[in-house]
């Protein structure tokens, strides 16, 4: 028997203090790196106001292109049309229950990881006194469902881009770009459809699933969605990756850095974009 130390165990000892022996910091590092890279790329790509469409392909960052849809209404606008629309996916992700968990941990250090101590003072703390989501601005997280409604609309547009990407001048075909756009649409759909607020709306708010035929129907929706909801975290990360990849692929193709392989056998740089927004 040997006494190793004789100090009181204080509640807050300082950032990262823990007896944990596993790599608890891994998730924090991953989150900061991935979210950081995505933010930088997305800001740059959205501000570029160019290279967001090529051939039958259209970048999800600019979708739907309101400026193209309503040219008169937005004729005054000189900046990128991406900024008209990006609030929706960013708001959806920013108020998403999974992303909240992730950035509260990684960026606000509240907590850095389970049973790992947080900083005593400084910028890395929530505020002087922790108030959770009870006060502005975090109380706005409660409006997640409104971003979910907007995200549902975006899903429709993403599938429209899938459809558009498979027809060039009325002729059916498939390119690598179509597949990238399809992957983005699938994962974005899974991400939106596995949303916690949607789960509540579909049936979660009911107490008596078996009350009548209508509630039974909602129960089956809720039950099915619950399976998806269990994978929400995966769809959140995967769709973030695929939406970035999709824009990057279209951008690089439009810039002529890479060449799209497709069944039409067309090099898109030789033709104008086919989308008629």
């Amino acid at each position: 028997m040997a006494e190793l130390n004789a100090a009181p165990v204080l509640k807050t000892q300082g950032f990262g203090i823990t007896d944990r022996k596993d790599a608890w910091w891994w998730e924090q590092v991953f989150t900061i790196v991935v979210m950081g890279l995505f933010t930088i790329y997305a800001t740059w790509a959205a501000a570029a106001n160019a290279y967001f469409e090529v051939g039958p392909y259209f970048s999800p960052f600019y979708s739907p292109n309101l400026k193209a849809m309503f040219p008169e209404a937005f004729s005054w606008m000189s900046f990128s049309p991406a900024f008209l629309i990006l609030w929706a996916p960013l708001g959806f992700r920013g108020t998403c229950y999974f992303y909240r968990r992730t950035y509260y941990r990684a960026i606000f250090n509240d907590p850095p990881a389970c049973a790992v101590d947080k900083p005593k003072v400084g910028l890395l703390r929530w505020a002087a006194d922790y108030t959770g989501e009870t006060l502005f601005p975090f109380v706005l997280q409660n409006f997640h469902r409104y971003f979910m409604y907007a995200a549902l609309v975006l899903v429709v547009f993403h599938w429209k881009h899938v459809w558009d990407s498979m027809f060039y001048k009325g002729q059916f075909g498939v390119g690598v770009g179509s597949l990238v756009i399809l992957l983005d649409a699938v994962l974005l759909s899974l991400y939106v459809f596995s949303c916690h607020s949607l789960r509540h709306l579909l049936g979660g708010k009911l107490n008596n699933f078996m009350a009548n035929i209508f509630s039974k129907f909602r129960f089956s929706l809720w039950e099915g969605q619950t399976v998806l909801n269990g994978q929400h975290w995966f769809y959140a990360w995967a769709s973030l990756f695929t939406v970035g990849l999709c824009d990057l692929y279209i951008r690089l193709t439009a810039m002529g850095v890479i060449k799209d392989w497709n069944t039409w056998g067309i090099d898109w740089l030789t033709v104008l974009p086919a989308t008629g927004h």
Binding site: R101, P111, C114, Y130, G132, E133, N229
Partner: peptide, 24 residues
Amino acid sequence: AGIGFCNITKCCTDRCPEQIRITD
């Protein structure tokens, strides 16, 4: 009960020995 104080960081769910999905 102060539900707004929960910032859904899910450590409760991660550590629950009964595997109750407390947060979700």
